[in-house]
Design a protein around this nucleic acid. Sequence first.
DNA 1: AAGTGGTCTAGACCACAAA
DNA 2: TTGTGGTCTAGACCACTTG
Lengths: 252, 252
Amino acid sequence: MRTEPVNGDTPALPRASAQPRYRAIYEALRQKIVSGEWPAGHRLPSEPELARTFGCARMTIGKALGALADQRLVTRRRRAGTTVSRPRPQESVLEIHDIEAELLAAGVRYAYRSLTRRVRRANAADAAALGVPPGTPVLALVGLHLADARPHALEERLINLEAVPEARTERFIGISPGRWLLQRIPWTEAEHQIGALSADATMARRLAIRRNTACLTIERNTWREEQRITHVRVIYPYDQHRLVARFRYRPL
Amino acid sequence: MRTEPVNGDTPALPRASAQPRYRAIYEALRQKIVSGEWPAGHRLPSEPELARTFGCARMTIGKALGALADQRLVTRRRRAGTTVSRPRPQESVLEIHDIEAELLAAGVRYAYRSLTRRVRRANAADAAALGVPPGTPVLALVGLHLADARPHALEERLINLEAVPEARTERFIGISPGRWLLQRIPWTEAEHQIGALSADATMARRLAIRRNTACLTIERNTWREEQRITHVRVIYPYDQHRLVARFRYRPL
DNA sequence: AAGTGGTCTAGACCACAAA
DNA sequence: TTGTGGTCTAGACCACTTG
């Protein structure tokens, strides 16, 4: 039992480096794993033991181990302890960015040009794509994303007017529907499908490419708390666009 | 100053629900944000204030706010406090899974069939793809991923033999190169490019599809701590495969 | 039954950035 | 200058799970 005035334990650390302590510990443990010194299945020392080793509180160890677990480098179970995970299944993550922001970042002039715009009651295809009952009022848009005035991608979009009634009168001049929606509706869930298709005559004309050119497609369904917001399919000519993503082990 | 025997503060919580306290707080705060009650730019109460509100320690609040920050729902800065972020840029994340695991999960028989296998010194194309100096010994593989004995995807792979010398003698019978590598080399960094192409005559023959069929391609470069491990391009016939991913606000 | 991780507390010091 | 988040501690209770 402690009854001293207690000023606050150790001086919270000398903090020799700018790096937080839990991160230094995280790096040290991670090194043991990626170097192979601790192979898959190896059991790490328990939290109290590591706390003694590193001379810190158990909570600090917990934070470091939690970070390793977040990255699937270790598996943690009560009683069973913390063990090195098997090499992660070949799985990674691709970030899908906003087209406009991406183009602006690349230093090209961006514009969205609306091609068609119709308010209608959802037909069978609309209902299937958007996931709403047939008859639901929807806004159907087709437009072009332009980079330096050249077609960059073709967008086909359905907006659920029950979820976003104010879209009924919006003309989308000078703003893409995606951006317009984002300024109003923060989505909470999204589903993506990435595929490929050969451009048909209409697509080819709109994108100024040859027929049957292989194109990349991204379809995205967006929800806001159970309610369907929008369905969009974006078509990229393959030779003009690639999705790129790079991943490090997350540096915390 | 406390000098009582101190048994450990409150009984660590009645724990009415199975849910940890920080998570309940996280959910409560998140609701304020996604409901619009706290719009973008709104400043949240400070940590000590929230601790009083929720009747818990500041650290518990910090954990909840940290989770919100991880998901970009709020921005945290010293002195400036915690503010609601602007609706997130249209950006999401696509998981790229291991082909074999995916097919097995779908309940189909999986097999890898090696088509060609060559050890050579990297030519210019190899060097560019794999990111090693020309002349570096590489293993070049072409193979098929089979689902229920039908071609599912075509894989073209280069392996850096300086990084993985034991691949020189491996025959990849009954195991795909990807899986073989994973069992040996945990990668720490990867870069992906997703694109589309029209199948040429060779691809079409190997995949048993018609020429010029639009295909989805995934290229992946893999590093281990600065060293290049492998480059792989996988080609999927568009009508047989789509990449799908769904994202909720991460439930913590 | 016992040991592990999961969570929590009350308090503290510090770094940083805004006022 | 000052208030904020970032980190840390020593200790505690609890839930889970395995031996």
